[in-house]
Amino acid sequence: MLSYNEKIRHIAKKILAEGKVEIVIGYRRGTLPMINEPCFIKHPEDVTRLIWDRHCGINLTNYLTQRKERIGIIAKGCDSRNIITHIIENKIKREQLVIIGVPCKGMIDRHKIASQFEEEIQKVKEDGDKIVVTGGGIEKIWKLSDVLQENCIICTHRNPVIYDELVAEPVAEQKDVNRYEDIRRIERLSPAEKAEFFDDLLASCIRCYACRNVCPLCYCDTCFVDGSQPQWVGKSQDPTDIRTFHFLRAFHCAGRCTDCGSCERACPMGIKVRTLTKKLEKDCLELFNWEAGIDLEQRPPLTTYNPNDPDDTFR
């Protein structure tokens, strides 16, 4: 994927120089290993700052919300699906965008690597299908496929579903992926076990709201946890209030979440936030045969009524 750089810069330079867009949104090299910084480029001569590697996990669609100018945006599979969702939800117009599609083979899970490396990580290098991590005088090598973000391992939309330019030939999509094994395991627990499972899952939450703020779906002017008239949720570290935040946020993402994994990547405490959103994503697939962000024309299941909608929960 490292070879994409030249092509990305070339396209960015072209669309900026031709005046097709006013800014290009992409990533620039981070100051630490395994993280890059979302950035914007205004001048064609600055495109060399743009980079692409396995550490571009943050979903850039988050940076499009309500922008008024014409924008070039770099989009991997999941970003492109969120762009579609954004267009459907009137957060950006298709005509404003030049989408630079990037076929993606998965992003590195920085939490996973850090948790298996005792010293401070100083350097991370990709070497074929391996990743070499060094720091504090030790070196560790992993197979790339073992340290990808969990959502990338089970991704079935690696290629952008909407784009104006494509930086490389599409990559092969993963087939026969067992997407929901972890969710099914939780579904099989008893109610008491489930409650305990989520208590543990969310125990370390510090309510920094990184999961919410990094999410392209969470663009409300005032989130329900912030509102004070009325105040829906307490603001302290009370575990019930923390759970309420996480569960309700997940509900608000139903039928919209593309499982891009940004929430999990952003969490400073390494909480597996996707355990909540993925359940709703699974339900939407099983009940409505719906995957978010695939088609600009189709209305999302929660905004439409279909006589064939399942109604087993009603009596």
């Binding site: 910084e37 914007f40 510090i206 309510r207 990094v214």
Partner: peptide, 16 residues
């Protein structure tokens, strides 16, 4: 404008 672009306005920096 340049340094704030990426910021998602979460509370991580202040809380840690």
């Amino acid at each position: 404008e340049d340094v704030a672009f990426a910021c998602i306005n979460c509370g991580t920096c202040t809380y840690v």
